[in-house]
Amino acid sequence: MNLKSLKKAFPYTIPVMLGYLFLGSAFGILLSSKGYGPIWALIMSVTMYAGSGQFVAIGFLTSPFDLWNAFFVTLMVNLRHLFYGLSLLERFKKAGKKRFYMMFSLTDETYSLLCGIKAPKGVDEHQFYCSIGFLDHIYWIVSCVLGNIIGSTIPFNSKGIDFVMTALFMVIFLDQWKDSKTHIPQFVGIGISVICLLIVGSEGFLLPAMSLILICSGILKRRLEAKLQ
């Protein structure tokens, strides 16, 4: 990573910065209310770097010690990340050692940014991707720690602030809609997820949804492949 790629990447990451500021400080506040101070917010945001994963981990930290439970529940909560890796295999292929940091920093938000943009001219592609992940990581760490320190002392009605992520995904969805020749994959993604949500409920719908999306993609391969080039 160099200064040039960081500078180029910065404007793209502003929406995520806003989102993380809210989401991260919400996490920090919650963590401090459970008796864990800023150092814990720092350790968690640096090593885990996962929104929903960290919220779930607060639960592990406030109930009787159970490592296996922590491991498997975190796996389940973050299972959707498997799709991110599959989507980015080709783009990360030539990134060398940087790949490992790029994998590590693949949060929902970083992934959705990477889906929506290409590296601008004159910047090394992988430096650029890496910079996005890194900037997002910094925002996340700062927000989690800051929230933990001062969040609970400033009165502020933050109700509805978590909608910032929904808004970000909606915008990326719209941009993808405009850029793609076929909208079938988007219908598949939304349609199957809604059906699974209605049948299974909000707790465990992602796993069946992901499986069905894979199956559907397989069935539609011949139809879609030509249009996706």
């Binding site: 991110y84 990326i172 997820s193």
Partner: peptide, 22 residues
């Protein structure tokens, strides 16, 4: 797998959107 890499970004953002609204 390469084919999945091309389809999944579109399907996944849709899925994330539903996930946010679950």
């Amino acid at each position: 797998i390469l084919y999945l890499g091309k389809v999944l970004p579109f399907a996944t953002i849709g899925m994330l959107l539903v996930y946010c609204l679950k």
